[in-house]
Design a protein around this nucleic acid. Structure first.
Lengths: 215, 215
DNA sequence: CCATGTGAATTGCTTCACAGCA
DNA sequence: TGCTGTGAAGCAATTCACATGG
């Protein structure tokens, strides 16, 4: 299991899990690689290959047992424990995230929120008190926070990320539109709505000009 | 230029553009592939290869002229026009998006918002009036909306997406945790915070067990 | 008989290394 | 000389096709 698993494989595993949780709730007992592929946007061979990196969980001629595969994927992804998360920056995105009740269901406990704006400090959003950024380091240590969600303006993002990592964060989810420079052993994922919208524009535009080529 | 450009290339182009806009604002005139790579998280060779798919924009021995390259990338990505966008679902995420002032700066005009909740209808958020879902089709046609942002609960996502496409949407940005089934000529991108967090958990967990292997 | 699991074949992406040009 | 542009090489990911076993 020491083999390097690619980012795209991990993304697919997470999608399989999302689907398996639904099937499990509907009490579906068995699923085939073909069905799982169909409902996650990939191919049956890809599903089997992805899973085969971690063992063989299916029954030949039959399919995969939904609850078992679900648990195995949760183990693989590291979701059999709870994770403590802090939100850095309580603007539009930050407060939307604090109000998003699904995190707790999925094993993520938002246990702290920070902002530099004095008027916001002391607010309580969804049971989390907004603290000043000066309290970042002791709070990360005390509450053993391992994931920081960066939702600050872009100017502040690099600094708060660096501080979060120094205070013990092992992973960063970055909503600010900037490439963060951090030690390579810190896991980073970027979420940028504008970037995704631009990707859509390219696809629509390119599809249009490809059509012209045919005429 | 008819060659198929991969999704990861398009993502990188968008990151280059993000950086170029910053450099341009700071009145930096020239940038090398190495500098662009450094500030977007890739390699110099990758930058040059990506750009070479569309022409040759640099001066050998010198670098790329920032304003020119910026404009070329905007043309390539289809950002020299404005795009009309609708937000479907005005919950936490939907209203955060409506309040996000950067869209207009980047060429995206949010011209409509819809919700099924009667108490929300008629609200005005950032100058956009919330309409009932029954008005989706005529509004998409009238206002020539080409991009729909799905921010509904997961149960409603497939239906509103299908309706948006039938009413003329060419692209979908999907915040609901579900794979949408739509005609293959519709561009779709998914944004799922939980999926990204799970990816981070895998990376942190896998890094930990890899370290054990070495001991 | 049916769907998994998996080497082999293929496709596609990234990196290399250097020719070409300001 | 310095950095771009680009074929060729190398590597990684996906798809194929079939042996395997419930």
């Amino acid at each position: 299991m020491a083999r390097k698993i690619s980012d795209s494989t991990v993304r697919r595993l997470s999608r399989y899990l999302r689907r398996l949780r639904n099937l499990d709730r509907q009490e579906v007992k068995v699923v085939s690689s073909r069905e799982l592929a169909e409902s996650t946007g990939t191919t049956a061979a890809q599903v089997r290959k992805d899973l085969s990196h971690f063992g063989s969980f299916g029954k030949r001629g039959h399919g995969y047992a939904v609850p078992e595969l679900r648990v195995r994927l949760e183990e693989i992804l590291g979701l059999t424990r709870r994770w403590r998360v802090a939100v850095l920056g309580v603007g539009k995105i930050g407060s939307a995230l604090l109000g998003y009740g699904f995190f707790a269901q999925r094993g993520f406990d938002v246990v702290a929120a920070f902002d530099s704006d004095r008027t916001k400090i002391g607010w309580e959003l969804s049971g989390v008190r907004v603290q000043p950024l000066s309290e970042l380091e002791p709070t990360f240590v005390d509450r053993e926070i391992s994931i920081a969600i960066i939702a600050t303006p872009v100017e502040a993002a690099q600094e708060v990320a660096t501080r979060a990592v120094r205070a013990g964060a092992r992973a960063i989810l970055n909503f600010a539109p900037i490439k963060l420079h951090l030690s390579p052993d810190v896991a980073v994922r970027e979420m940028d709505v504008t970037l995704e919208l631009e990707g859509l524009c390219y696809m629509v535009t390119a599809a249009g000009s490809a059509a012209e080529d045919i005429e």
